[in-house]
Nucleic acid binder design. Structure first.
Lengths: 199, 199, 199, 199
DNA sequence: AATGAATGAGAGTTCATTCAT
DNA sequence: TATGAATGAACTCTCATTCAT
């Protein structure tokens, strides 16, 4: 019983993810979501109490999925450098998936500015991301491959800023081949930041 | 005649900027804009042909203003390092102005994903920003203060990614005092990137 | 089997009475009724075929209960005057019960205007009430305590009009202490009408 | 300008009156009202901010109109008895108008039970009606045609209860010819109450 | 040049009813 | 018997756009 409910919610959330990525946050209607999920409009309200709720759970769900995927990626590596590379491979997973995730995520970032709930969820995502950065940097310092002079948290934040800024730039560029460029540039820049920074 | 028309359009655009920053892109109505501008709803349609047009011109206008402001800032400096610092001072102008600009800009970035016009305007803004980066980096290489091994355009792009990523992070954090932290972290990271990068 | 069904229907009807009195006729949902009865929404449909049916049976049920209660009250008295007083004590039973009954009854009266079924049930209730009035007045005429000149049925109708009009006025007044005032005023007016009327 | 707005609101309110009397309070839709008024759905919202507002103003409007009509009727008479008769002629104006007004009024009375705004408006109407009763009774006492022993306000309240109760009974009866019966019975009962009451 | 009244399509939401389990 | 998931029609309300003045 509980299982079926969970399946339905997942089904609707996937539909919402599709629709938001295709039409953009404010063009989404419940009818769109229902159509994409292959259910009636009433079902959407039955499982979520409002449109707001669906989108709230969607943001929560996709950021957590991204985070878990990244966590798993670095867990399979042993050294700071390989963990860092695995992390960036996970982040820059593919043009298709990045386009989908970042176009939806950007919509939520825009909404977050005036919405405390979205803000909270995004803050949580940031903290998770910074946590990954922290872990890698600390390990690198221990290994002696990263500069001991740099502040761990600050650089974790800068890492994520570089990643988000890059993928947002890439989204605008609209060219698939640039995905590789941004991935490599990001890796190089981060490596340089962590290895050679002074002061 | 022409002059009055220009004034009216500017007046309405300022109102649109205020309203979008306060309410968010998709909560804006023409009535809001008209009220904020102190004119009737009909006037807004008279000078712009549609709501879409106002917002299109708004994005164009604010990105160009930001660009000009940044250009002027670096024009007053002579060396690469001072130009870079002036650039970042111009970008991180103040918590109030950054909040206003970036909340509106983020809204447009989100919209841009499905809208070629927004995309084009943003691409133009990016190119302007990269141009500033290029100029500073080239000068620094000539002066010998920046590493000659780095690729100019790539690093100009990374600079802007770091800036945008930082200010978007800051927007979510919602704390005024962090503005200073992000500004300084950005300057330090960029300086380190440009001065010590290898390969 | 039959017994259980009867119990269930009673249980649901009590719930309906509670819910209509609390929320008002048009704010009632089947879910409310089901919740108040502690059963599932499907059960309500199982025992009654439609929402309309529940409410129809509710009106029938509560008007008959009121009538029976009034009948019993006058049956315990022997004289016209004591029967009349007992009748009015039964009608003005208590602020709580009057509020509950009259708020629901008023809802039905309002609905009755466009609904022949409600109208029929209410007409039946009126006839029952007039019957009580008739009985009391006839007895009083025989006893010589009421004027022989008055028309029995007409005065029975006026009695009930005075009662309903008073309790509806009282409902609006919203003050518990006025309940006593309206009860006494009603008794006095009816006594005067029946005892001293000319022509 | 103001005049046209007033006309439109009146036009819409008349339509609302028609529609509520035909369909009943909770079956009314904004589309019905718009259709009956011969305007678009948007216009109704343009002049009233919500459905609730239309109905609130409707109750206020019709009760005040009724009151003014009654006031004018008694103003044209000089003695207590002729004023009383004129009042009742005004109240029982015609089967058509009574049916329309009382079916709508009954809807509002039912709503008033859970709505403070409706309650307030109805209370105001009651006070106006009691005021008319007071004026007539006081005059009759001065003239010596009404019993000096009766309490003025109490009897004014009972008068109105008798009137409302009678017309509500008549509504259910659904027979045009009974209108005359209820009018006459009401007049006779009130006259008897005011002339011959003891204690 | 400027107004704001009027339109109507389309949004989110509610809920009686149906029906597979 | 009993459940509650699913449906979809119908509701109120919003708002870009049009247009007579």
């Amino acid at each position: 019983m509980k299982k079926k409910e969970e399946e339905r919610k997942t089904q609707i959330m996937k539909a919402a993810y599709n629709v938001v990525s295709e039409l953009g946050y404010d063009n989404v209607t419940l009818q769109n979501i229902a159509d994409n999920a292959g259910v009636s409009k009433g079902v959407v309200h039955y499982y979520f109490n409002s449109k707001q709720n669906i989108l709230l759970e969607l943001l929560d769900s996709i950021t957590n999925q991204i985070y878990k995927y990244e966590l798993e990626a670095i867990a399979q590596q042993q050294t700071a450098i390989t963990k860092l590379k695995a992390y960036l491979e996970a982040v820059f997973v593919s043009p298709q998936k990045n386009r989908k995730f970042y176009s939806v995520y950007l919509d939520f970032l825009a909404q977050a500015n005036g919405n405390a709930d979205y803000k909270r969820i995004n803050m949580n995502f940031y903290e998770n991301c910074w946590g990954i950065g922290n872990e890698i940097i600390e390990l690198g310092k221990k290994e002696g491959v990263f500069s001991k002079e740099i502040d761990t948290l600050t650089n974790a934040k800068m890492m994520r800023a570089l990643i988000d800024g890059s993928l947002i730039q890439w989204l605008t560029s609209n060219e698939k081949e640039l995905h590789q460029f941004y991935k490599e540039s990001c890796i190089n820049s981060i490596l340089n930041l962590l290895q050679y920074s002074k002061e």
